[in-house]
Design a protein around this nucleic acid. Structure first.
Lengths: 136, 136
DNA sequence: CTGCCACTTGAAGTCAACTTGAGGTCAACC
DNA sequence: GGTTGACCTCAAGTTGACTTCAAGTGGCAG
């Protein structure tokens, strides 16, 4: 099992060392050993960091992310709970899709008064309706 | 043109008055008049707030959102730029979709060591690869 | 005309998620 | 053996997005 120095991990995952230390401090990841002073990380941490990055994209707080995974990085929620999170993601995806469509529509629609364009308004209203409940 | 009292707008959009005042302070929205001391908002602000809410969901900062729309709320970026934002959203949507799929997979997969499950790892690695560039 | 209550201001406080800085350690290359 | 460079700790600072607070104002119901 080869171990990763914090600098290597940092470069590999695109996360600054300071952030990795911070994540360890709050218990989001673990270093498994020290080489002298230096933290050594286990290679599965790479996957964990990928999950964390995804979780952040999805708008979860670090605390929430921490609650979702056991210390080895395996998702640690009952199946029903996982499906709920997945459902919430579906909502969010729908909202983002509409926002994307709205942006593309505006980019291509020659009208200059988008605020009055029924198509635009419909996209926005729909999108934000589903959003309201999903906001944390 | 009927005007909305800050309290009415707040209730209608689910945004606290303090936040509306804050948004006005940083120039994200405008009140068009006063009734005595009270701010009066124009009805298009409702749509603007919907856009802001969507922008936040998508992970844009208030500064970025402010840069995207003119003071009347109409998107104010050149078409090419809009398409770029839409592309970024597509990336993000792909990442969220994979995260969702990963969650659903974990919920239903009987294996207890998801970290080693090739399907799970593939979903995660893919997802975070596309994520890296999209992170702000 | 007297309360009341939803609003007003400006300043200060809060929270998450980091980053920065000062001062120290250690192994390795010149 | 000395300097460099990558790491260490702990505390303090920063940023974004608000919220809270104290003290004041204005319209309208009774």
């Amino acid at each position: 099992m080869k171990l990763l120095d914090i600098g290597v991990l940092s470069k590999q995952c695109g996360v600054p060392p300071s952030t990795l230390r911070y994540y360890e401090e709050i218990g989001l990841i673990q270093s498994v050993a020290r080489n002298g002073l230096r933290r050594q990380f286990d290679s599965p941490v790479v996957t964990q960091l990928a999950l964390i990055s995804l979780g952040k994209m999805a708008g979860f707080s670090l605390e929430e992310i921490k609650g979702m995974f056991a210390k080895d990085g395996t998702p640690q929620l009952p199946p029903a709970e996982l499906h709920l999170r997945a459902d919430a993601l579906d909502e969010q995806i729908r909202g983002l899709t509409r926002l994307r469509d709205a942006l593309r529509h505006v980019a291509d629609c020659p009208a200059e008064t988008h605020m009055d364009c029924p198509k635009f308004k419909r996209l926005i209203q729909f999108a934000s309706r589903s959003t309201q409940s999903a906001m944390r």
